[in-house]
Simulated scan of single mutants.
Amino acid sequence: MEGDNTDSAAGEDGVPAPATGSSPALNVLCAICNEFFRANDIVFSTAKCGHVFHKDCLTRWLNRSSTCPQCRSSCTRNRVHRLYLNFAEATEYDDTEPPKMPIEWVAMDLDVHSFPDAHQPPEGAVQCGTNEDGLPTYVARAYFNDDLLPSVYVPEKKAAYGSYACRAYALTDDVEILVLNDCDLKWVPGQHGSFPHDALHTGYSELGEITYMGRGIYEGILRLGKVHPSHKVMYMPHRGAEVNVNTYEVLVVTPRDHAER
């Protein structure tokens, strides 16, 4: 399959391989079309299991299946993202640490076999409020079913907590914590589903509606939760259940270099 052969071939389930160009083949196969990736191919990865495929191959597959083509774990078109791979000669800049982004979602390693301090929030993580037991909580998000849930990360529990369909869930897979570098943040009042135009896009529902990180008072405690505009409330996890309030504050983040312009 390597070399100058540019003919497309039918792969698994009859999905045709993308046309190959003049760029060199890499020693990595797309499991759908069974062709080697080339340096100029558009490559996508599944968010949960991390398997990699040609974009066109994966798109066709997910049009008729909701599983990963390689391992058959749950996967939808909302749970994939593009990979940008650089293939070039090493340069003097390769060992230079890249600049930090103002707003980052940092993946947390919450596996039971992780290093002892892997659950600790990184520098710049946004702490706000507590959970029902008085433990500090951090702004986070997590993939759950077909949603990206604004979630509440509790380091002492080594888990994030999100609310979904009237229940609260402890989440340890696909958890990301918000980290800010040289940013200003504020909490803007909202009610009955309202949110400021510059609110931080934190998650989305299975229908594609943007959801936001909010904070509100529940049983006298300042709590983090999910502002769901069309539902006109802020949801939060509480002792295994999903509870809500209709007045709250919404998180707004502004990188300082933007604020100075």
Rank of each mutant, 00 (worst) to 15 (best):
A10K: 12
E12K: 12
A19L: 14
G21V: 07
S23K: 15
V28G: 00
F36E: 10
A39I: 11
S45P: 05
S45Q: 15
T46R: 08
C49M: 08
H51F: 09
L58C: 06
L58P: 07
R60L: 13
Q70M: 14
R72Q: 14
S74D: 04
R77Y: 03
Y84P: 00
N86H: 10
F87C: 09
A90V: 14
A90Y: 11
D95R: 12
T96I: 11
M108P: 08
S114N: 07
A118R: 03
P121K: 02
E123N: 09
A125S: 15
T130F: 10
N131V: 05
N131E: 08
E132D: 10
P136F: 06
Y138C: 07
F144R: 05
L148M: 12
L149V: 11
P150V: 04
S151W: 06
S151F: 04
V152P: 00
Y161K: 00
S163T: 07
Y164H: 15
R167N: 13
A170S: 15
T172L: 00
D173Q: 14
D174F: 01
V175M: 08
D182Q: 09
C183Y: 03
C183W: 01
W187I: 08
F195D: 02
D198S: 11
I210P: 01
T211Q: 05
G214I: 01
L224I: 06
G225R: 01
V227P: 05
P229W: 11
P229Y: 10
P229R: 13
H231C: 10
V233T: 10
R239D: 08
G240D: 02
E242V: 07
V243H: 03
T247G: 03
L251K: 02
A259G: 00
